[in-house]
């Protein structure tokens, strides 16, 4: 294999992994607060179609991003009302949200089926983008990819360096302790859920506006579920989520090339490869029980009643 092919795969891997970075980082924050939102797939779909429509109507990427994030957050708000205010079961509500999102996005996208957008141009940075190897590898992406990296840094910094992040982790660990200290557990969980929704929406926008700028019903194609799995297998740590997302993207792209070489392996098996490889790698690096216990939010998925303490 020559260098240019490897380089090409790596560059494509970053682009393929970016929707997971958005959605999984959002879900990571939600889950760190102790709320399990299984509706990522639905929120991504609604974000994708909203952003797509905004882009098609206005041509403004900023508007597409803002409206897609707002749509994702609106979906998350529905989930929040159900699970945090009305104390409904989180798993059932999350599944319902996904099904709702699939239907809603298909309905909103009726007039846009197979409609194509121009896509988002890569940023050309003078000098940097022209460097050999480094140029294409690090400086050949569109603005959304760079913003995903910025968001990764911001989320890591928030969770582990700020007092608010400490509180968020504390609430996920022991909401009754946080309540006893006088913190508004439900209010903070709302913020975390809304953030998760906005990030999932952004992941959807990236897919429909930049990665494959064509609207196809159900185009998120399971990426929401993969993001959920990434969070768990990465033991709720941002850096591992990021690595897992790019690994998944990389193997997805690489197996396309393998199929292209005409190697005698059934394509179905190759298509499974990204899922299997990502899970194996993340399970192996996260197999230490201590790491899992220290990073997994102890109250995850449990409904919290402040009045019943």
């Amino acid at each position: 294999m020559d260098l240019s092919l490897v380089l090409h795969i790596m560059v494509a891997a970053v682009a393929a992994g970016t929707p997971f970075v958005f959605a999984a980082l959002g879900e990571l924050v939600t889950e760190k607060s102790g709320v399990l939102n299984l509706g990522v797939e639905g929120m991504m779909l609604v974000g994708a179609i909203t952003g797509f429509i905004a882009m098609a109507k206005s041509g403004s990427l900023l508007l597409a991003v803002v409206s897609g994030m707002a749509a994702g957050a609106a979906m998350a708000a529905v989930f929040g009302v159900l699970t945090l205010t009305l104390m409904a079961n989180q798993v059932a509500s999350g599944l319902a949200l996904t099904i709702f999102g699939m239907g809603l996005s298909a309905f909103l996208g009726l007039d846009y089926t197979s409609f194509a957008l121009p896509g988002v141009a890569e940023l050309h940075l003078p000098l940097l983008s022209d460097l050999p190897v480094i140029g294409p590898l690090l400086f050949s992406y569109d603005v959304l990819v760079y913003s995903s990296v910025v968001l990764f840094v911001a989320v890591s910094w928030f969770l582990y360096k700020t007092r608010a992040g400490l509180l968020l982790r504390g609430i996920g660990e022991a909401p009754e302790s946080a309540h006893a200290l006088g913190y508004n557990v439900i209010g903070i969980r709302y913020l975390a859920v809304l953030f998760g929704g906005a990030m999932a929406g952004l992941g959807g926008v990236y897919l429909s506006v930049a990665y494959t700028p064509v609207w196809v019903e159900g185009m998120v194609a399971g990426r929401g579920w993969v993001s959920l799995a990434l969070v768990v297998f990465a033991t709720w740590r941002p850096l591992r989520v990021m690595a897992g997302a790019y690994l998944f993207g990389g193997i997805t792209i690489a197996q396309f090339h393998v199929q292209g070489f005409g190697i005698e392996i059934p394509s179905q098996l190759l298509s499974m490869l990204p899922y299997i490889a990502t899970i194996i790698v993340l399970v192996v690096i996260s197999r230490d029980q201590q790491t899992i216990r220290l990073n997994s939010p102890a109250s995850l998925g449990k409904t919290y009643h402040p009045e019943n303490q």
Partner: peptide, 28 residues
């Protein structure tokens, strides 16, 4: 508000966060 007035409470069932350090617990 109670803490601001100068009231402290040690709970029967501890209100600590197990996966955080002592200093982080106290800071909250």
């Amino acid at each position: 508000h109670a803490r601001k007035l100068g009231i402290g409470m040690v709970f029967q069932h501890f209100s600590l966060f197990e996966t955080l350090s002592v200093a982080e617990n106290i800071s909250l």
